[in-house]
Nucleic acid binder design. Structure first.
Lengths: 162, 162
DNA sequence: CGGCGATTGTTTGGGGATCAAACAAATTCT
DNA sequence: AGAATTTGTTTGATCCCCAAACAATCGCCG
């Protein structure tokens, strides 16, 4: 998961580069911000000795809130191909955080669920995410944060790659 | 380049999933938005028969605005490792868009520059990016777009994975 | 009820992207 | 000069993405 493989924040030592149009491009600013946020997420978890990517966190939340979910439904919710999901679930399952149960109603699908250990881990992860969220929003008022989320949703609505 | 390998927008057919906390998490909304924007970018270029990622576009702009740039300086500006940059430049160079000239002052570094063909291509790419930008911001007023960019910069400032 | 099409999870194959470590060449510092 | 540092490459290890092919299973429809 976690598309932006860190891409940490360049120390900006030689920051006086001319970025031309880029600075006014929403897509560019969005990308850079996302990159910095990802790095902060990684740093937060690493500092706590926990290993998890933003994508994995989202996946775990989705599974725990929709127990019994099939892999197809989950893949659709995540916006990735079902074949991409397989190794990700393999890893999470190997870590003992979730299981692929047999669906009692449909032999083709797997009913995904968190293990008790997965539930516990997710609770801890959620606390870490809260810390992380607090940090990335530290320069924003709660009103600004709400505005930001609202505007981002609007962008997503407009982007829809039809 | 372009960390979020498309991750297209799920048709949201089975959209009635419970996303729990996720919807209120800035990091999550940011990730999804970035994903949709990336998909829109890809769709825009594909429709025009042009092949380019957001990362490549940013790189080209950086090079044309800072001709003679070294690979290290470019890598730092992009926030990636210098070894990651090598295959990316190889590809762009193979497409005849840029060249690695020998630096007259420092035998270790390469002086990057766009080829005439690269300049022409970038002009076209820029027009496509403008179209793309217009679409993703289509649900926002120009004031909202400015606000959004400002807030995103604030997030990036707060994130700084110190 | 029996078969055929659609769905699901997996595997395989092909692109890329990321970083870290090791190296040779060149520059800079001592 | 000699040592330390910098730069671009190569190699190695992970990881993500998608498309295509497959077997198993479900479901519809004659």
């Amino acid at each position: 998961m976690s598309r932006p493989p860190v891409n940490a924040n360049a120390p900006d030592l030689a920051a006086k580069l001319d970025r031309g149009v880029l600075s006014t491009l929403l897509g560019y600013v969005l990308r850079r911000t996302q990159s910095a946020v990802f790095a902060d997420f990684a740093a937060t978890f690493q500092a706590a000795g926990a290993a998890l990517t933003p994508g994995e966190f989202g996946l775990l939340v989705l599974v725990t809130r929709n127990t019994g979910l099939s892999q197809m439904a989950l893949a659709r919710a995540l916006g990735i191909d079902r074949s991409t999901l397989v190794p990700i679930l393999d890893r999470l399952q190997a870590r003992g955080l979730l299981v692929r149960r047999l669906s009692p109603t449909d032999g083709r699908t797997h009913a995904l669920a968190l293990t008790p250990s997965g539930d516990k881990a997710l609770a801890r992860f959620t606390r870490l995410v809260r810390t992380h969220e607090k940090r990335i929003a530290s320069h924003l008022s709660t009103a600004e944060t709400r505005t930001l989320i609202r505007l981002l949703e609007k962008v997503r609505a407009g982007a829809r790659s039809v």
